[in-house]
Design a protein around this nucleic acid. Structure first.
Length: 340
DNA sequence: TTGTGTTTTATTGCCTCC
DNA sequence: GGAGGCAATAAAACACAA
């Protein structure tokens, strides 16, 4: 495990300071991937020869340049044999292993190298180790850890990016949902208006038919379309719109017995108690109102039901109007209704 | 000074590739 | 089977507040 190295002796100083170029031994040692047990630097130091150890001191020159808050000198230079004497050197050899942080300059150098390529070829590893006065294995470990940190950062970035995208999409979705509900409400509103308008138009365009019983609006199922309404009318009146149009001219024929003066008379006279229903024009448009007045529709009249359309119920019995004559009286409404 | 949290260095075991 | 990469982890080094 990681703690296996505790208690090991980790390297020593070198004569003549840390400027030597004898890193060959160390490089060979660290550059190879030895079996775990033999990857420890122990054998290197166990050699016991300070001269053998010269190699690792190459990092010192680097260290001397940089300095900093951390250890002014790298591990291998902490103890200078010549400076501290043999005693200190021996003490050093018997010191427990201690981790040494790289200097700022070393780290900067490695960072730049990492930016160029985060993979480390053997040649570059050796070169970097030489340049920085580190063991190739240290360089390799540094790159390995650096890649791990980079990967973590990258994951965080990706996460943030995905989360941002998710939030944007969520926001868009919620906006679209609101818009959809709004449009749906609008559709419902417009549909209601349309149906109401259709209904009102039907109320005022029905031909008279004394054979048709007055009915309320809710009594029969709704006719889905104008064609269905037409079919219904055909079945009721036994003729189509074209046929009915032949009597169109009769609508406002002053000579006709159907003629009434809208300004002064009700065409039906006083409404019957039986069929007296007050027409609701509250939701009728201005055009409808105009049409109503132009067509001399009485303000108060009786309705009859054909499909989902209410037609003014003809006071046939009062005026003696029969059959198609009723249809001709309210032709304009009839026409409009079938065109819906 | 000390306790605590974070960062960095290094080890270990496993895996893949050649 | 050796070399190298990676994930997990230990532990030293460091930062900082109390």
């Amino acid at each position: 495990m990681a703690g296996a190295g505790v208690g090991r002796v980790f390297g020593g100083g070198s004569s003549g300071g840390c400027g030597g170029n004898g890193s060959v031994g160390a490089s060979l040692l660290f550059n190879q991937r030895l079996p775990r047990s033999s990857q420890s630097p122990e054998p290197f130091f166990i050699s016991g020869s300070s001269s053998t150890f010269l190699g690792s001191s190459s990092m010192v020159s680097f260290e001397d340049v940089v300095g900093g808050k951390r250890s002014e000198r790298p591990f291998f230079c902490t103890y200078d044999q010549e400076e501290n004497g043999d005693e200190d050197f021996d003490d050093y050899f018997h010191q427990p292993e201690k981790k040494r942080r790289l200097t700022v300059h070393q780290v900067q150098f490695l960072e730049k190298s990492f930016e160029v390529d985060n993979k480390l070829e053997p040649e570059r590893k050796v070169q970097l180790a030489k340049d920085l006065g580190l063991q190739p294995r240290q360089v390799a470990i540094w790159f390995q850890n650096r890649r791990a940190r980079w990967k973590t950062k990258q994951l965080e970035k990706d996460f943030d990016s995905l989360q941002s995208n998710f939030n944007d999409l969520k926001s868009d979705y919620e906006n679209l949902l609101q818009e959809k509900e709004k449009l749906q409400a609008e559709v419902v509103q417009l549909t209601d208006k349309l149906l109401l308008k259709e209904k009102k138009q039907g109320e005022h365009s029905a031909p008279f038919n004394t054979n048709i019983e007055p009915k309320t609006v809710q009594e029969e199922p709704i006719v889905e379309s104008a064609s269905e309404t037409e079919d219904h009318l055909v079945s009721v009146f036994g003729c189509k719109q074209e046929d009915l149009s032949s009597v169109k001219s009769d609508v406002i024929d002053s000579d006709s017995p159907h003629y009434v003066d809208a300004a002064t008379h009700s065409p039906f006279g006083e409404p019957s108690e039986t069929y007296a229903f007050e027409a609701d024009h509250s939701d009728i448009s201005q055009d409808d109102e105009d049409y109503l007045s132009k067509s001399l529709l009485p303000s108060s009249h009786v309705f009859m039901k054909i499909g989902d359309v209410d037609y003014p119920d003809p006071p046939a019995n009062n005026y003696g109007l029969q059959g198609e004559d009723h249809a001709s009286l309210f032709w304009p409404y009839w026409d409009i209704n079938l065109k819906m």
